[in-house]
Computed example of a mutant assay.
Amino acid sequence: MTKVTTVAATTVALLVAIALCANNPAQAMTYDFSWNGNGGYSATGSFSYDENTAPATFLESGSGQTKVLQSLKISFLYLSANLIATYNNVVNGISTGQYFKFNFNTVTKEIFGLIDVGGEVAGETYLKGTVNTDLSLYQVPQSGPDAIGDSNSGNIVVKQ
């Protein structure tokens, strides 16, 4: 009888532990964002992170393992209908961009500070600058300095 009681108690304890772990599963939050330049260019994208482990604000920078972001994708368009390019800057918590910068406030749901998202090599497009100050869409030429294709006051709209 003691052996049966011990096995039953162990089984119940194991089931309780599993149930407690299941009560707090990872909650991936996904947000969409958009930017509209003054000259007809725009950017739309989305990003995700685990809301259970994310701090009130997080800063991501450079390539490699991210601290919080799980994904970030951005597309650039001209006149809202002509797709220029799409980039997956973060995939499964790994940033692919050397110049990548992204900051988010999980409380106010705002992208803030310096950002640099998009492509990095010749022929690619990226969005760079300071949110709510000045953001510019750049195009990387085959040679010479990067060219500003469009800009605005830095407003980025975020929606869940």
Rank of each mutant, 00 (worst) to 15 (best):
A8K: 15
A9H: 03
T11V: 15
T11R: 14
T11G: 14
V12P: 08
A13H: 06
A13W: 05
L14S: 15
L14T: 15
L15W: 07
A17G: 11
I18W: 06
I18Y: 07
A19T: 14
L20N: 11
C21I: 10
A22P: 10
A22I: 12
N24A: 12
N24K: 14
A26N: 12
T30V: 15
Y31C: 13
D32K: 15
N36K: 14
N36Q: 13
G37S: 09
N38P: 04
Y41M: 12
Y41S: 14
S42E: 11
S42A: 08
A43C: 08
A43T: 07
A43D: 09
T44P: 02
G45Y: 07
S46N: 15
S48W: 05
D50W: 05
T53W: 00
A54E: 06
A54R: 05
A56Q: 07
A56T: 08
A56N: 10
F58K: 01
L59C: 00
L59T: 08
E60G: 03
E60P: 01
G62C: 01
Q65F: 00
T66Q: 04
K67D: 06
K67G: 09
V68W: 02
V68T: 13
V68K: 06
Q70V: 00
S71R: 03
F76G: 01
L77S: 08
Y78K: 13
L79E: 06
S80Q: 10
A81G: 08
N82S: 06
I84R: 09
I84D: 05
A85E: 14
A85K: 11
T86E: 12
Y87S: 07
N88T: 10
N88F: 11
G93W: 01
I94A: 07
I94D: 10
S95I: 03
T96A: 11
G97N: 07
Y99I: 02
K101N: 14
F102Q: 03
N103Y: 08
F104E: 00
T106A: 07
V107T: 12
V107A: 09
